[in-house]
Every structure is written in C-alpha cells, then in structure tokens.
C-alpha cells in the first residue's frame, strides 16, 4: 500500500511541476500589443511590449494611451472650438482667456523658438495656413503680399501667459496654429502616461514623429527606417532609436498644397508666410517629442549654418540629417544611419 502511494505521489508531483512550468513559460512569453488609430490627421501606431501575463492590462493601457493623445488633440486644435482650447482662444483674442494646461505648456515651450529662429518658427500663422488651404482648394496661388499681410504686426512674443490663473492674452491681430508642436507634445504626454502605468517598453509612431520608451528584448534599440523623400516605400536607411529618444522628419513630400499641379510645402516661413524649398527633408533626433517636432520644422526653414547656431543654443542633445534638393545628404556627426544598399543619395 505504502509503495503504491509513493509512486502515485511522485507521479502527481511531476505532473504538477509540468503544468506549473507550462503556465510559467506561457505567462512569461514576450508579447507586443499594437493598435493603430487616426489622430491628428495622421495614422498613429502604439506598440506596447510586455509579458503575456500582463496582456489584459496592456490592452487597457493602449486604449487609455490613445485617449491621452485625443485629449491633447482636442486641447490643441484650432479647427474645432472646445472650452479652453486653441480655437476658443483664437475666438477670444484681445482678452484674457482661461485655457487648458496642455495649451499653456505648448505655448511656453514653443514661443521662445520665434526668437531662436529669428522669426521663422511662428505659431501665429493660423490665418496664413487657411489662405494656403483655401488657395489649394480653389487652385490659385496666393500672392506674397496676401500671405505677408495675414501674419499681422504682433509676434508670438506679444502673447501673455498668466500661468498662475491659467489664462492667456492673445494679441487681437493673431490666431495661433499649433500644427508643428502638438503632435510631438502628445508623444511626450503618452510616454509619461505609459511610465505611470508601469509600461517599460513602447514605441509610438505618429507618421513623421516616433518616440521610444525602453528597448525591445532582443536588442538595445529600436530599428527605425527613414523614408526616402522622393519614392514611397523606399527608405534612405535605418536609425537606432534608444530609450527616451524622439525622432521627427519634416519634408515637403508628404504634406503639400497642390496648386496648378505644382507642390507647395505645408511648412511656411514665419516671416513671409510662404513655403521654403531649402531641402527635401530634415530629420531630427533629440530626447523630447515636442522639441523634435519644433526643431524639424525650424531647421527646415533655416539655412544649415543658422540651424547649427540654433542647436548650439539649446540644452537638448540634437542630431540632424538633411536631404538637400540635389540629393546630397548632410548630417551631424552623431547622427548614425545605416544607409540602405540601393539608396541614391550622395553622402557628404
């Protein structure tokens, strides 16, 4: 009797260990939870990396992360008025108006770039943007006088921010458009939300802006392909994006106004209100989403020399890659890129 029991017990014991180890391996399996939504006029993909055991939590977190982004979009849009957002502030220009915290934060960070870029990066271009939108719909070319007049005499320096009471005073002749700011800003907000939700590893891809949190299991970095500015589905090369880094591209290739069949870049000079055609694309790597967004736009509008001076003034680590109109690539020394074999660009 006793012998039989011992055998039975050992069998049960082994089966038990077997099942436990099965469960253990299953739970510890590495998984990626990924979702794509259309936010801020672009396709946004959020990827969360974790263990199978956390799958339900990751599924919930990813939905909340998209909500964080949508909230930033609503708080920052100039096209739909919500209480305390940019469109409402534009409507209440000339008076103190109570705005949401996202708007205060974005204004505080982006206004100094007006002086830093000698006026090229200007958030007060809502009317100018509308002139170009309207012109491309009706197929006429706005005159330089028209765009210049739409900018008005006031500059972003004239915006008064009352942080204590969360109020902003917008000059009466200015309407703001945070198009070159809020996408990058929303990435920072999503990353801090993910950190608070104890997500260690994530990659957020919002078209021209990507930000990384942590690293994938098999590597110390994320492999990011930089798209060729001329040919869709071709890439210039790949870049290693590490924990905390944000990468952003500004180019005339993906967003433009089509007038008489000619493409006009959506990136407008803050001085003239006209598109500039200095480069095919400018790609920036730094450690903050909002800075990557502002800088890719700013550097797109500045000469390489002025761009270098701007970078030197900043406290952020910045690496930059330009694709010039003659297909030459000019980049900072620290911008490490592995060129794809068939890329046509001349590396300088």
């Amino acid at each position: 009797m006793l012998i039989v029991n011992v055998k039975k017990i050992s069998l049960i014991f082994i089966s038990f260990i077997f099942i436990l180890s099965l469960i253990y391996f299953y739970m510890n399996q590495n998984i990626v939870v990924s979702q794509t939504q259309f936010i801020m006029n672009t396709t946004v993909e959020i990827k969360l990396f974790g263990k199978n055991i956390d799958k339900n939590k990751l599924d919930k977190t990813i939905n909340k992360a998209f909500n964080v982004m949508k909230e930033v979009e609503d708080n920052s849009t100039s096209y739909f008025a919500y209480e305390g957002n940019a469109a409402s502030l534009n409507a209440h220009r000339g008076e103190y108006y109570r705005v949401n915290q996202d708007l205060i934060d974005q204004l505080s960070i982006s206004i100094p770039f007006y002086n830093l870029t000698a006026g090229e990066f200007n958030i007060g271009l809502f009317r100018t943007v509308n002139i170009w939108k309207n012109a491309s719909e009706k197929n006429y070319l706005p005159t330089r006088e028209e765009t210049l007049n739409s900018i008005g005499k006031s500059t972003p320096n004239d915006i008064v921010i009352d942080k204590f009471n969360s109020r902003v005073l917008l000059p009466p002749d200015m309407e703001i458009d945070l198009g070159g700011v809020s996408k990058g800003y929303s990435l920072d907000k999503v990353i801090s939300f993910l950190k608070n939700s104890s997500v260690d590893t994530a990659l957020i891809n919002a078209g021209g802006n990507i930000i990384a949190l942590g690293k994938p299991v098999e590597r110390d970095y994320f492999n990011i392909a930089v798209q060729d500015p001329e040919v869709i589905n071709k890439i210039i090369g790949t870049v290693k994006l590490r924990d905390g880094q944000a990468i952003a591209t500004s180019g005339s290739y993906n967003r433009y106004y089509d007038i008489y069949g000619k493409k006009y870049s959506h990136i407008l000079s803050g001085i003239t209100g006209y598109p500039t055609e200095l480069y095919k694309s400018v790609t920036v790597i730094t450690n903050k989403g909002i800075i990557s967004d502002i800088l890719s736009t700013s550097l797109f509008l500045l000469s390489i020399d002025d761009g270098r001076k701007l970078i030197d003034k900043l406290d952020y680590p910045v690496e930059v890659l330009y694709v010039l109109n003659d297909d030459t690539i000019v980049k900072s020394e620290g911008f490490k890129i592995e060129y794809s074999q068939d890329n046509i660009y001349k590396n300088q």
Partner: peptide, 10 residues
Amino acid sequence: DNNQIDGVLK
C-alpha cells in the same frame, strides 16, 4: 529577423 524594422518614419 532580429534586425527587423520596428517603425518607419514618414
């Protein structure tokens, strides 16, 4: 495959 692309910057 370990060197796959994680994202495309457009």
